[in-house]
């Protein structure tokens, strides 16, 4: 197994860890962290697979997409955090209401 594939598998691992965290955690800040980890995993897969060019320089198109993605991720995180603070100010809890526990 070569280095690109190793990093791609790590990326998959991060994606799954993030998805697991997103499902099992109730706290919204933790969910936002989990989403960011998922995103990082996907970026890692994209960039790792772009390096399958042998000795030639890696494919620049996925790199450009990932840079765009990183900036979009930070703006989405900012919006999510603001929504979380707004919800906490309204309900006093940084969690989504659970069915059957109201």
């Amino acid at each position: 197994m070569s280095a690109p594939f190793f990093y791609a598998l790590v990326g998959i691992g991060l994606f799954s860890l993030g998805l697991y965290g997103l499902i099992v955690h109730a706290h919204l800040l933790r969910k936002i962290l989990a989403l960011n980890i998922m995103g990082s995993g996907i970026f890692l897969v994209l960039v790792a697979l772009a390096k399958r060019t042998g000795e030639a320089p890696p494919d620049a198109v996925p790199h450009a997409m990932v840079i765009t993605g990183v900036v979009v991720a930070v703006s989405a995180t900012a919006l999510a955090l603001t929504l979380m603070l707004k919800l906490t100010a309204e309900t006093g809890r940084a969690e989504l209401p659970e069915k059957g526990r109201e």
Partner: peptide, 11 residues
């Protein structure tokens, strides 16, 4: 992932 070809120039 592991079934992808080991060499791909992409774009």
């Amino acid at each position: 992932i592991l079934s992808l070809p080991p060499y791909a120039a992409g774009l």
